[in-house]
Design a protein around this nucleic acid. Structure first.
Length: 583
DNA sequence: CCTGATGCGTC
DNA sequence: GTCGGAC
DNA sequence: GTCCGACGACGCATCAGG
C-alpha cells in the first residue's frame, strides 16, 4: 500500500503549526508506523528535507526555482516580491501564487495523486540529468511536475528541492520519532544513524526486521560514519572543569576533517559530510598505505595546507586542493598538505567506537608514526593547559580541542564530550552601510548587515565599473568606507526589531530586498580570522563575523580603518608563514 | 574558447 | 562554521 | 542540555551563452 505525497504535505503543515516537540514527534511516529517498508525512507528524507548527500545531488537551487515559478504563473518580479515578503519562504510563496495563478496544464482526468515513490523518482531523475542542456531538462521536468500537483504539494516539493523545511522538525527529532515508532532505545537509533549516515535506511531496516534489526547495523569499512561533534568552551580551564578535572587537549587544526578507510591495499578518504574525496589527496593515500602498520582500519583526522616544511597555511589554501579534478598535479606541487590523525574507530576486525578515547588514542599511537598524530597533552593542571593553548596559537593553529578521556565515540547525545577552545582576536568597530531583509521567521526585519571600515585613501571610483552590490554600496558613499563582510549573527530578535526601525529612517536606496543606508550605526564586530577576499574591493573579508554589541557611544569617525584590517591580517600569519604569503 | 551564473561543500 | 531562541 | 533555523566567505566544477 503506497502513501500519497499529499498526506506527507499535510503532516508537514501540522508540524509547522505545532510548537511542542513532543507532540511533533508523536505526529511523525503515527505516520512512520502506518507507512510501508518500501516508502518509509522516502518519508524520512521528505519530512526532514534532506537526502543523504551521497545519494542525490540535484543541482537545482533558489535561482532556478524562482525562474520556474515565474514561468509557470506568468507573474512579474514585483508580484513575486510582494508575496515573498509576506512569509520569507519560497515554498509558501509558490503555493500562494499558484492558488491565484494556476499553471496552465493539460490535466488528465482521473489522475491519481502522486505517491512518495513517484515523487522520489522525480528527484532521482532531476539528479541524473548531467551534461549539455541538463539544466533545461531539469527545469522542464520540474515544471511539468509542478503543473500536475496541488499548490500544497508544490510548497513541499519546492521546500525539498531547497532543503529548508522551517517546520522545526529536523534530524534530531526524526531520530526520536524513529526510536519511538519502533520501540528502540534512542541511543541505538542515533548510533545506527551515525554508522550508516542514513537515517532513512535505518528506518527501513527496522520496518523489515523489527526492533532487533538495529543490532545488525554496525560500523563497516568503506561505509563512512558521521563525525563526532564538539561543543564550545571559553578557555582550557573551563574545559578541565567540564571534563571533571583532567582531560586530553589536542591542537585544533584549521583544515578539512576527514576519515580514512583502509582494507588491504584499498584506501578511501571521506569528508565530514561523507563525500568521497580520495582523488584530491593522492599523497595522503600513499602515506596511509606505507606508514601505518595495520591491514584494515578506519582513522580520523585533519588535512591542513602547509608549506613544504610543514608550517601551516591559511585555511583558504586547502580549498584549492579540496574536491579538485582539474590541474590536480600542478596544484599538488604548489600546495603541500599535512595529515594529522586524532582517532581510531576500527582496527583489524574490531570496532572501537564504544571504547574510551584514551584507549583508541593508545592503539592509534601503536600503528601510526608520531609525527602523523595531532600534538596532545593530557593534564589536570590549568596553567599547563593554558601554556599548551598558547603554543598552539603560536604555531599558527586555531586553538585546542579537549576530549574527555573516558568518552566513547558517540553522536551528540548526553552532552558533547569534545570541547573546542578557539583563539580570540581583537574586535573591530564598523559601520552598517547596507542591510537586507531576512528570510523565514526574520522576513519582516532588516537582519543581514553589510559591515564597513573607514577608508583613508579616498579615491572615488566613479569611472570604475562596479561588479557586486557591495562595490555599488561603496560607490554611493564615494569610497569613504570599504565593505569587509556581512553578518546576521549576534543580536537578539528584540535588538534586530529595534534596529530595523532605526535603519528604516536611514534608507538612501532600495534594491529588491536590500537597502543602502546613511552611515550612522556603529557596531562592535568579532570574527575568527581575516581572509584575503576576491569579492570585496578592499581585498579583505572577516571570517565568521558576528556583532558583539551596538556602539551607541561611537560615531562613524571613530570606527576602525581598512589599514587596521590589513595590519591584523598580516599579524595573523607573521610567526609562521609570512614569507610564503608575500611571494 | 572564454566568461558569468549557479550550485555544492568546506569551514 | 556561529549565534539566539525555544523546548 | 539539546535541537533548530537563521545565514557568513571562499574555491571548485559545471553549464549556458556569446
Amino acid at each position: 500500500m503506497s502513501t500519497h505525497f499529499i498526506e506527507l504535505c499535510k503532516l508537514c503543515e501540522q508540524l509547522e503549526k505545532e510548537a511542542s516537540r513532543n507532540l511533533k514527534v508523536n505526529i511523525v511516529v503515527d505516520f512512520l508506523r502506518k507507512i510501508s517498508s518500501e516508502e518509509v525512507k522516502f518519508a524520512v528524507y521528505f519530512i526532514t528535507g534532506k537526502f543523504p548527500s551521497n545519494l542525490l545531488t540535484l543541482n537545482v537551487g533558489y535561482s532556478t526555482i524562482y525562474q520556474i515559478i515565474k514561468k509557470l504563473s506568468n507573474i512579474s518580479d514585483n508580484q513575486y516580491l510582494t508575496e515573498y515578503n509576506k512569509t520569507g519562504d519560497m515554498g509558501e510563496t509558490a503555493k500562494k501564487i499558484f492558488e491565484i495563478y494556476p499553471p496552465k496544464t493539460q490535466k488528465t482526468f482521473f489522475e491519481q495523486p502522486s505517491t512518495l515513490t513517484e515523487v522520489y523518482e522525480i528527484f532521482q531523475k532531476i539528479a541524473e540529468f548531467t551534461g549539455e542542456s541538463s539544466r533545461v531538462k531539469k527545469q522542464r521536468l520540474i515544471e511539468s511536475f509542478l503543473s500536475k500537483i496541488t499548490p500544497l504539494e508544490v510548497k513541499y516539493f519546492i521546500k525539498n528541492l531547497i532543503g529548508e523545511m522551517r517546520h522545526g522538525f529536523s534530524e534530531g527529532l526524526m531520530e526520536e520519532a524513529v526510536a519511538k515508532a519502533f520501540n528502540v532505545e534512542l541511543e541505538k537509533v542515533r548510533l545506527a544513524s551515525m554508522v550508516t549516515g542514513d537515517l532513512g535506511k535505518v528506518c527501513e531496516f527496522l520496518k523489515i526486521f523489527g526492533k532487533d534489526g538495529i543490532e545488525k547495523i554496525s560500523l563497516t569499512v568503506f561505509q563512512p560514519i558521521k563525525p563526532m561533534l564538539a561543543d564550545l568552551a571559553k578557555n582550557p580551564a573551563e574545559a578541565l572543569i567540564r571534563h571533571g578535572g583532567k582531560t586530553s587537549f589536542e591542537f585544533k587544526l584549521d583544515g578539512v576533517r576527514i576519515q580514512i578507510h583502509k582494507k588491504n591495499s584499498n584506501v578511501k578518504i571521506f569528508s565530514r559530510r561523507l563525500k568521497e574525496v580520495t582523488e584530491a589527496f593522492p599523497e595522503i593515500v600513499e602515506k596511509i598505505k606505507h606508514e601505518i602498520k595495520a591491514d584494515s582500519f578506519v582513522v580520523e583526522g585533519e588535512i591542513i595546507p602547509t608549506t613544504k616544511n610543514g608550517k601551516p597555511l591559511p585555511f583558504q589554501y586547502i580549498m584549492r586542493r579540496y574536491g579538485r579534478v582539474k590541474n590536480l598535479e600542478k596544484t599538488i606541487k604548489n600546495i603541500a598538505t599535512t595529515l594529522y590523525l586524532f582517532d581510531l574507530l576500527y582496527l583489524d576486525g574490531e570496532v572501537l567506537i564504544g571504547k574510551p578515547f584514551y584507549e583508541r588514542r593508545k592503539k592509534l599511537e601503536e600503528i601510526a608514526p608520531n609525527q602523523m598524530l595531532t600534538p596532545q597533552l593530557i593534564t589536570s593542571n590549568p596553567v599547563e593547559a593554558e601554556k599548551f593553548f598558547e603554543e598552539a596559537i603560536k604555531n599558527g593553529h586555531e586553538g585546542l580541542v579537549a576530549k574527555q578521556l573516558e568518552s566513547a565515540y558517540t553522536p551528540g547525545i548526553r552532552g558533547k564530550k569534545w570541547l573546542k577552545i578557539k583563539k580570540v582576536l581583537e574586535t573591530l568597530d564598523l559601520v552598517i552601510l547596507a542591510a537586507e531583509y531576512g528570510h523565514g521567521y526574520r522576513h519582516d526585519w532588516l537582519s543581514d548587515y553589510y559591515l564597513a571600515a573607514k577608508n583613508l585613501e579616498v579615491k572615488p571610483i566613479f569611472e570604475k565599473d562596479y561588479v557586486s552590490f557591495a562595490d555599488y554600496v561603496e560607490k554611493i558613499h564615494n569610497d569613504r568606507f570599504k565593505v569587509v563582510g556581512k553578518t546576521f549573527k549576534g543580536l537578539t530578535d528584540e535588538e534586530i526589531k529595534t534596529l530595523t526601525g532605526k535603519l528604516k529612517n536611514l534608507i538612501l536606496e532600495k534594491h529588491g530586498r536590500a537597502v543602502i543606508l546613511k552611515p550612522k550605526i556603529v557596531v562592535e564586530v568579532a570574527y575568527s580570522e581575516i581572509q584575503k577576499s576576491p569579492l570585496y574591493s578592499c581585498g579583505y573579508a572577516l571570517r565568521f563575523a558576528r556583532i558583539v554589541r551596538i556602539r551607541e557611544d561611537k560615531t562613524i569617525d571613530e570606527i576602525d580603518t581598512t589599514e587596521k584590517v590589513k595590519e591584523i591580517f598580516e599579524k595573523q600569519f607573521k610567526t609562521t608563514t609570512s614569507n610564503f604569503l608575500e611571494r
